[in-house]
């Protein structure tokens, strides 16, 4: 169990969830519609991913109104931030070791 892939978090490994976590980590709160447009996914798909991450305690969902318009705000939790940062670091490690292996193969 020494390969870095064992440290990857299965919950946030899908591209949509990983990007969602990255987007949330960049701010205190982000509105649902902006996330949907940023990630270029449908409302239902985004809701599904949000449900999984909320259940894992990685994000919180806050529903409210601005005037008469309903709004849904999402925020990353401390647990989610730690999971995202760990996953991000592991992906970088894998990327760098793959690059190193490639260079060594070309040189030999």
């Amino acid at each position: 169990m020494t390969h870095p892939r064992h440290r990857l978090d299965e919950l946030i490994h899908t591209p949509v969830r990983f990007s969602l976590m990255a987007a949330l980590a960049a701010a205190e709160k982000v509105e649902f519609r902006l996330l949907r447009d940023t990630l270029e996914v449908s409302d239902s798909l985004l809701s599904k991913h949000i449900g999984v991450l909320e259940e894992a305690g990685y994000l919180t969902v806050d529903k409210g109104y601005v005037g008469k318009r309903p709004r849904t705000w999402l925020a990353i939790t401390e647990q989610g931030k730690a999971a995202f940062e760990g996953h991000y670091a592991t992906l970088r490690t894998i990327g760098q070791s793959a690059l190193r292996d490639g260079v060594e193969r070309i040189e030999s």
Binding site: P15, S19, L34, T38, G95
Partner: peptide
């Protein structure tokens, strides 16, 4: 694969940061 994942995530984070300006 991991590079694409990272690039996609960084793009998403950058868009959110721009929207926070």
């Amino acid at each position: 694969m991991s590079e694409d994942l990272i690039r996609g995530a960084e793009d998403a984070a950058a868009r959110v940061r721009r929207a926070a300006r």
